[in-house]
Design a binder for these strands. Sequence first.
DNA 1: GAGACGTGGCT
DNA 2: TAGCCAAGTCT
Length: 370
Amino acid sequence: MNFAKLLPADVLLAWYDRHQRALPWRLTPEAHAAGDRADPYRVWLSEIMLQQTTVKAVKPYFERFVTLWPTVESLAAAGEEPVLREWAGLGYYSRARNLIACARRVATDLGGRFPQTSLELQDLPGIGPYTAAAIAAIAFNERAAVVDGNIERVFSRYFAISAPLPQAKADIREHVLAATPSLRPGDFAQALMDLGATLCTPRSPACALCPLEEGCVARRGGNPTAFPVKAPRKVKPVRRGAAFIAERAGDGAVLLVKRPVKGLLGGMSGVPTTHWTARQDGETGISAAPLAGEWQRAGTIGHVFTHFELRLDVFHAVICSQTAASATLDGWWSAPRHLPEEALPSVMKKAISAALPQAFAPAPQRGNLA
DNA sequence: GAGACGTGGCT
DNA sequence: TAGCCAAGTCT
């Protein structure tokens, strides 16, 4: 493809040298100047965590992971459970399972070294076109076309691309490849992402501060927020279900089960629930309770997933230790002080909290509460 | 290609 | 507030 115009990498890189964000997975400018190279493990880990996830949400998780598992070998040697527990709350849990699979493949099959090309990286579990290009560019200096949501937005505005996403992806990718410099491809990608995150934002872009303002076609046209054009999104269906908080008499332990590896919240822990279906009737679902007991309604929680909205009726029962001990269970009883450490997705914590408000209450502060 | 797949923050 | 949105991947 032949482009009459390129997005100017030199201008963007000059801006990046002044305004880049300091991020835990990023080399400091001083370290970079001293000749340090980015650690492929940290680049990979951060890129997996950042898939569809905000920088703010990722930061504490990233810090915790690199503290617990500073190398790909240490992560590969970790059990699945501790990794899922640490991932709990970050969402998109298949990422955590792929993370483990990828670490083990790198540690065992590849001698602990990540492949250095985007082509090979993309063969690893959890690494798609974006992540492969990002790792190759940032860690291995490959002139790879890195295209994420930020970069799609920046380019669709800069060139006023009127075709809607995702159809425009191929066109955008060509523009990105053409503009990517051989010298600092990783910095170029990160500069675009910083620009998209801080100036060329979805809602109210700060065009007056943008280093690319001069050549930006959308800016010239006066309506940068008209780009990127996207297909209208579909309405979220509502599903309903019931969740059962079984509390063991005596110690207050809660019955947990491990969810099937495939599907929603796959491989994570949770309380027993009915299936989540589209049924709208007032049926309680108590008949699906995992144990005999005096089940009481503890409320209804709402939770919004990417593709549906859930309304979950929460039931609570105190189970006498006799029943708790004798019943056939495929789960386990988790004592109150262990509950916060379980691999519980947010929706499960929300359900448990509806019945047991103190379950995940923040640790009491020292000193007096006003 | 389109749908499944989480969560929390921001406007 | 109710959407909209975030450094996507897998099937």
